[in-house]
Design a protein around this nucleic acid. Structure first.
Lengths: 207, 207
DNA sequence: ACGTTGATTGGTCAACCGATCAGTGATAAC
DNA sequence: GTTATCACTGATCGGTTGACCAATCAACGT
């Protein structure tokens, strides 16, 4: 008789499966991951994954929804609406960078999501966040804290894409910086550069 | 007796396999692609793939090496060294954008490469290109065409990452731009924005 | 002529994968 | 105390997949 008295007390195998799924999916992608690996990581039998999530597709989707929801609530609380526009933007970008830095598996899963997955499931993703972000950038632009020669949405996208690249391609970044001996660039300094970029202030001093 | 007189005259099945491999790998990734799909796409038998490339890993690697080499020779010829630094940078970024726009399968394969693949094969990739690019940016910076408040390597990385994001996330870009009704932004105008970014000239006009 | 070499094929095999299912035990409703 | 429900397991099944192999055939040197 197999002793299965261990699993029951946990009472939340679903959660273990979702966490195991995130770990394995993030490491190997949708097609690279196997239900057996996930089951082992979660410490449950493989059949249970199907019981709770219907199948591989369903699990992938659930993991995705979960990390998106977590990110959205984090970002919604990250920026104090009472803050003046320039400080608001600074806080927003810093929170964005910090969140993904502290959630590397979720970050990598999102990278996979760009390519892999059962169906190119263009979810109604961070649409809300985007709108909120653009509004904030526009406010900052009106207040004169952001260069006026580009649409605020573009400034937002540019900031986000640069931060993402900074996170997922540290090696290439380092290569490029090492040429001039600047390879030890800290996150804070990097963020300041991004801010200066969209501020546009310092000018090149076209000699 | 099966008639196999068709395949022989081609004389270059290797090439067909590499092209088919690029197509299938770009669409489905390493783990999502199957040798049978590639063989069918290339119009040859599956055994031939193993004969020429040893296996799936070898084929993936060869496809990768091929597109990197193609990109490198393209970029090496794209910028006229006699050009003044500012025009050189403009030409470089334009070539970069155009190349990936005209090679969407290679672009997508490179995206896969970031995550998928048999071994995290950190090839000595575009190292040469990077050095060349940083040197060009430094020259432009010295000449006063690029803002002096950031390392030239960072300016290069930023430009590249923004262009890449512009290419692979058109949907998100459009969402962000649509908020202010700027969703119809053309490549040329976008590139001009990127250039202004690293020029830094227009200033925010801090009212 | 003849043997060697290499390109190419069709067929085959063991391994693995996702899914399914009958069975077991705990829980709760009646 | 009986029954229905639900979480969970272990085993199994059909289908794929990457790799392998013997056989065929053209090309070429000798």
């Amino acid at each position: 008789m197999p002793e299965l008295s261990l699993a029951y007390p946990l009472a939340d195998a679903r959660n273990a499966i979702l966490e195991g799924g995130l770990a394995i999916f993030a490491a190997d992608g949708f097609h690279g991951a196997t239900m057996r690996d996930i089951a082992q990581k979660a410490g449950v039998s493989q059949g249970l994954l199907h019981h709770h999530f219907g199948g591989k597709d369903g699990l992938w989707r659930m993991v995705g929804e979960r990390i998106t929801a977590d990110f959205m609530t984090y970002m919604a609380n990250a920026v104090d609406p009472a803050l003046p526009a320039d400080d608001g933007i600074k806080a927003m970008l810093r929170s964005y960078l910090n969140y993904w830095k502290e959630h590397p598996t979720a970050f990598r899963f999102n990278l996979w999501r760009l390519l892999d997955g059962p169906r190119s499931e263009r979810v109604a993703r961070s649409e809300h966040i985007t709108q909120h972000g653009v509004a904030l950038f526009q406010k900052a632009q009106d207040a004169g804290f952001i260069r006026k020669d580009m649409p605020p949405g573009l400034a937002l996208i540019i900031s986000g894409s640069v931060i993402q690249f900074w996170l997922h391609s540290q090696l290439e970044v380092r290569d490029a910086l090492a040429v001039t001996g600047d390879e030890n660039l800290e996150d804070g300094v990097f963020l300041e550069h991004v801010l200066n970029l969209i501020r546009g202030v310092p000018g090149s001093g076209t000699t």
